[in-house]
Amino acid sequence: GEAEGPRDALSLEDILRLYNQPINEEQAWAVCFQCCGFLSTEDARGRRAPRPRALSAAQIRLWRDGAVTLAPTGESLHDAGKLEYSRSTETEVIESLGIIIYKALDYGLKENEERELSPPLEKLIDLMANTVEADGSNDEGYEAANEGMEDEDDEKRKISAIRSYRDVMKLCAAHLPTESEAPNHYQAVCRALFAETMELYTFLTKIK
């Protein structure tokens, strides 16, 4: 058992292992939204946590209140100075996050099996992980910051490339019947996931 004592946070990896099954689609949307919310706030405050290139489900933390944060990898922290400079770009973090979320949806499936995802969620992951088939006009680049003059409404209607945490959040919000409900709704989904997992954890600890 990796987990001991009462906890305020569970990693996505803990959750997958405890249930021994994949997360559901609603949880995937919620973790994406909440995690990108955290990351965009971190960036806005100008105090980015150092983030190595390859993230894992162990670094995604779900908190009791439904917040989702991204923890830096422990071992690399000793290398302080160097890591600050080698931290990932926003698109790289989004790509890693998309891959982690896909793997959480795919958890426990055999190599020759594939889960049928709803088209909007598959599209979100495709965009996040940057695996969308190029259709000619797709010139995204890691360092390219062509933000500038984008029409807000147009962007909301169809996002063909994700460049920021805010883009991910917009897509997650657009998935809901009422977009303005997104923060409350997704927080509640994550809070429930945490609570249910803790319940299961407590139960399993007792019978052990």
Partner: peptide
């Protein structure tokens, strides 16, 4: 409280699983 059910299909070469695998 149960998790929603999901359908499993055979892995497709052009599917998202294959594309994600290539990234990792």
């Amino acid at each position: 409280k149960g998790k929603s059910l999901y359908k499993i299909k055979p892995r497709h070469d052009s599917g998202i699983k294959a594309k994600i695998s290539m990234k990792t």
